[in-house]
């Protein structure tokens, strides 16, 4: 999933959508996921990177990433997929 280009993300995990004025905070894992998504990293590669960095279970990270992606969609922070 791609994140909108204009979304600002600070190193502390503060996320600002300049189009809507909404702001959010995310934890370290969410921040890592967001930054990888912004770089256009594929889902599998994100799971692998997070699993390695946080020494977590792959299944747990995959579930967390799915949940997190849904949340980003809900808050309109994602780019619409082009057909």
């Amino acid at each position: 999933m791609k994140i909108k280009n204009n979304i600002a993300v600070s190193e502390n995990g503060f996320v600002f959508n300049p189009a809507s004025g909404e702001s959010f905070t995310t934890n370290q894992v969410g921040l890592e996921m967001l930054n990888l998504m912004r770089k256009g990293t594929k889902k599998e590669a994100i799971i692998a990177a997070i699993t390695e960095k946080f020494e977590a279970d792959t299944g747990v990270i995959e579930r967390d990433l799915n949940d997190f992606s849904e949340m980003l969609k809900q808050y309109h922070l994602h780019q619409h997929e082009e057909s």
Partner: peptide, 22 residues
Amino acid sequence: PMRKQYITDKGKAWGGISITDD
């Protein structure tokens, strides 16, 4: 353009943020 962030009981903005909404 501005989005109200903090609204008084009279509906007035007590805090707000400038946005880029095309």
